[in-house]
Structures are given as C-alpha cells and as structure tokens.
Computed example of a mutant assay.
Amino acid sequence: MRIRSTTLAVAALTLALAAGIPATTATASADTADAATRPGDVVASAPSSFHPRPGQPTNTKAWKIQYRSTTADGAPDVVSGTVVVPQDGRVGPRPLVSYAVGTVGLDDSCAPSDHLPRGTSAEGTLIHQLTQRGWAVVVTDYEGLGTPGPHTYSVGPSAGHAVLDAARAAQRLPEAGLSASGPVGIMGYSQGGQASGWAAEMLGSYAPELQVKGAAAGGIPADLLKVADSDNGRAGSGVVFMLAAGQDAAFPELKLDSYLNPAGKTLVDYLRTHCAAIDTTVGSFKRISDMTTRDPLAQPDWQARLNQSKLGRTAPAAPVYQYHAAGDELIPYAVAQQLRTDWCAKGADVHWRAIAGRGHITGGTSGAAAAADWLADRFAGRPSDGNC
C-alpha cells in the first residue's frame, strides 16, 4: 500500500466511511488530510470499544484511527489501529503502550481493530492487563490490514514504523487526552516481537521525540531466513508461505506467484484471504519444494529483501526486555540468542529472560506479565536492569 500525499484526501474519505464515521466527519477528515503530512498524524477517527472477551466490560474508551506512517521503502502510507484509554480519573501524564500483536493473518478481516470491539482478539486479555494498570494502549493493525493494499507480513521496517507512528497518533488524538511528552512503552510478541524490536532499533532515527522508556519484545523472528529454514516442512510451515506473501506484498518485484506451482498458488491464495487460526493449520507440514517450481528464498533478490528485516544491526535507543521460550518450536531459540548477542555487542541495554519449559504460544502468554512488570519499572523511573 503506497498512498501518496496527493491522494491522501481521497484515501482519508474512503477509510473514514469504511470505518463507519458519519459523512460530515468523514468529509472533514478528507478536507484536512493534506495537512496530515507527518508520520503519526491522524487522518480519520471514530468511536470504537474494547472488550477482552465478548461483552466483557473494561471501563475504557476506545477509538479506531487511521494515521500516517511509512512503508519499508520510505513511501508515505496510511495505517489503521485502535486507541484504548482507561476511564479511571487519573491525573497527570498517563503511560502509553504501543502494542504490537502476534500473527493474526493476511486478510483484512484479521485486523485487530475489527476484533477488539467484539472481544475476539487472541491478545485481548493481555491488552486488558495493561489497561488495568491505568495505561493507555494503542494497537496497530500494521500496513495493509484494515486499509487498502495487501498486508506486508514479516517486513520489519514497515512494522516498526507502524508501531512508532501508532504511539504518535494516539498522543495526537485529542479525544484520548494523552500528553505529547508522556512516557511511552513498546510491547509485542512473535510478529509483534519483530515489530517491537524494529521500533526499538529505529526509534533514535525515526521518532526521537517519543519518550520511550523501554521495549518488551518476545519470541522475536530476528532472522527470517533462519526461521524459514527451520519451519520448512514442519508444523509451522504455514508461516513460511505467509512471510513470503508478506514480502511479496511489500516488494512486488519479487514476483512470488512466478515461483509457485498450481498447489502453491492454491495455498498462497488461501492464506491471503483467511486468518491465522486456519492458515497455520492449512499451511502446516508443507515443504517449499512441494509448492514451487524453484525456491524463491534461495534467490539473491529474495535473500536481500529478507535480510532487510534482520534485526541486530543497530542498538536499540531504549532499554529492551527480550524474552524467549527455550522450547520454542516456531522461532528457533538460537535466533533469539544471536539477537541478544548482537544487541549486547553494540552496547544496548538488554534484559534477557529465557522461559523454561514453554513453547512458542505458551511462552508468549506466560511471559507477558513479567514483561509488563518490567515496563512498569521503567515507567516508575527505576534504573534499567540489563544483563548482557
């Protein structure tokens, strides 16, 4: 998705109407869209709601937003998301967490902003635990989920931009009442861990004005080539084909479909139009060689693009809490260890935690509370506790 500044007014009107904003509000958003030229500027907003489970009350207010962001190749785009603010009468700057969800799928129907109001988000309870601490939360939909264009799944720079710009947008949304200089945290696991890691790495150059106190990132697929090699033909092989589709979405010159045989085209077309719960099942135990006429991931152009999403080449500009399940069957433990080594070698402030006896999913759920406790310490101004 590459919405240029000359078409932002039309894009804003289309997105606002799709979100159910009244015509007058949508028109106003369109009229001011050309002024929304900075990354993080709000293009459109509408009241929403947040429920961890269907109908579960949360004492919060929520808004669905569309905001300016940046693609992996530096072009302006529009991303959607959800801002959730507790209604607890707090006085003073309220901490804001920019929360990056794990893999939800490639179809627009998978977007978190579509599921948070209905109580059907897989991470709704984890998000609720943050709002119960009195923190505001903004949840990005990432590029291409809930907005025009395909989802650029696994493309790290795009995801990092979306996470940082979501925080900017939440602070610039008047209804949310958040301070532009308030404390910010970043949190995410799995795909969200990649997005959070990228946000931490690009913070200093892309969004230095944000007062980010720390980033909690778990289950990070820091090296996509190694992840794909590990998952090829195994239970997590659906992720391999999803990441190929996501890279192709961001970089159409990769021409993924030209590598696919009929079975591969059927599989990838299915993955593009469904969500993760079914995608990971349908795509499991498939080998790249059985779905292609030749392996795209073995080609230099594909390897170059996948390596653009590799983490560990820049020290995060804020303290990082990195956690990973020792028994992770989807993201190799060694990939996480290497990222820790690379960050530490560059002088980063990293608190590393290995979660024993857990796999990928259970590592995420069991590790979330400790990650939030670590963020709470950063919000409280306590010294960081890196253990490089």
Score class of each variant (00 low, 15 high):
residue 11 A to L: 12
residue 11 A to G: 15
residue 12 A to V: 01
residue 12 A to D: 05
residue 13 L to S: 09
residue 13 L to H: 02
residue 15 L to Y: 11
residue 15 L to W: 08
residue 15 L to H: 07
residue 15 L to I: 14
residue 16 A to T: 13
residue 17 L to T: 15
residue 17 L to G: 15
residue 20 G to W: 01
residue 21 I to T: 08
residue 21 I to R: 11
residue 22 P to K: 04
residue 23 A to F: 02
residue 23 A to P: 11
residue 24 T to Q: 06
residue 25 T to M: 07
residue 25 T to Y: 12
residue 26 A to Y: 09
residue 26 A to P: 08
residue 26 A to K: 08
residue 26 A to D: 08
residue 27 T to E: 09
residue 27 T to G: 05
residue 28 A to K: 08
residue 29 S to E: 04
residue 31 D to S: 15
residue 33 A to P: 04
residue 33 A to R: 04
residue 34 D to Y: 04
residue 35 A to N: 07
residue 35 A to R: 13
residue 38 R to Y: 07
residue 39 P to D: 12
residue 39 P to F: 03
residue 41 D to T: 14
residue 42 V to A: 02
residue 42 V to C: 06
residue 42 V to W: 10
residue 43 V to I: 05
residue 44 A to S: 11
residue 45 S to C: 06
residue 46 A to V: 05
residue 47 P to D: 13
residue 48 S to H: 01
residue 48 S to T: 08
residue 49 S to K: 00
residue 50 F to T: 13
residue 51 H to E: 03
residue 51 H to S: 15
residue 52 P to I: 11
residue 53 R to V: 04
residue 55 G to K: 06
residue 56 Q to M: 09
residue 56 Q to Y: 04
residue 57 P to V: 13
residue 59 N to E: 09
residue 60 T to E: 03
residue 61 K to A: 15
residue 62 A to P: 10
residue 62 A to E: 06
residue 63 W to N: 14
residue 63 W to P: 15
residue 64 K to M: 01
residue 64 K to G: 10
residue 65 I to H: 06
residue 66 Q to N: 15
residue 67 Y to Q: 09
residue 67 Y to N: 12
residue 69 S to E: 03
residue 69 S to T: 03
residue 70 T to E: 07
residue 70 T to R: 02
residue 70 T to I: 06
residue 72 A to N: 06
residue 72 A to P: 03
residue 74 G to C: 05
residue 75 A to G: 08
residue 76 P to N: 04
residue 76 P to E: 08
residue 79 V to H: 08
residue 81 G to P: 00
residue 81 G to E: 00
residue 82 T to I: 12
residue 84 V to G: 06
residue 84 V to R: 08
residue 86 P to F: 00
residue 86 P to Y: 08
residue 86 P to H: 02
residue 88 D to Y: 04
residue 89 G to M: 12
residue 91 V to A: 13
residue 92 G to E: 12
residue 93 P to N: 15
residue 94 R to S: 09
residue 96 L to I: 14
residue 98 S to E: 00
residue 98 S to I: 10
residue 98 S to A: 15
residue 99 Y to Q: 12
residue 99 Y to R: 14
residue 99 Y to T: 07
residue 101 V to H: 00
residue 102 G to A: 07
residue 102 G to P: 02
residue 103 T to E: 01
residue 104 V to A: 10
residue 106 L to N: 00
residue 106 L to C: 03
residue 106 L to Y: 06
residue 107 D to M: 05
residue 109 S to M: 10
residue 110 C to P: 01
residue 110 C to W: 02
residue 112 P to D: 12
residue 112 P to I: 10
residue 113 S to I: 08
residue 115 H to T: 15
residue 115 H to N: 13
residue 117 P to I: 11
residue 119 G to N: 00
residue 119 G to E: 01
residue 119 G to H: 09
residue 120 T to I: 05
residue 120 T to R: 05
residue 120 T to P: 04
residue 121 S to I: 01
residue 122 A to R: 03
residue 122 A to P: 04
residue 123 E to A: 11
residue 123 E to L: 09
residue 124 G to Y: 09
residue 124 G to K: 12
residue 125 T to Y: 10
residue 125 T to I: 10
residue 125 T to N: 07
residue 125 T to L: 13
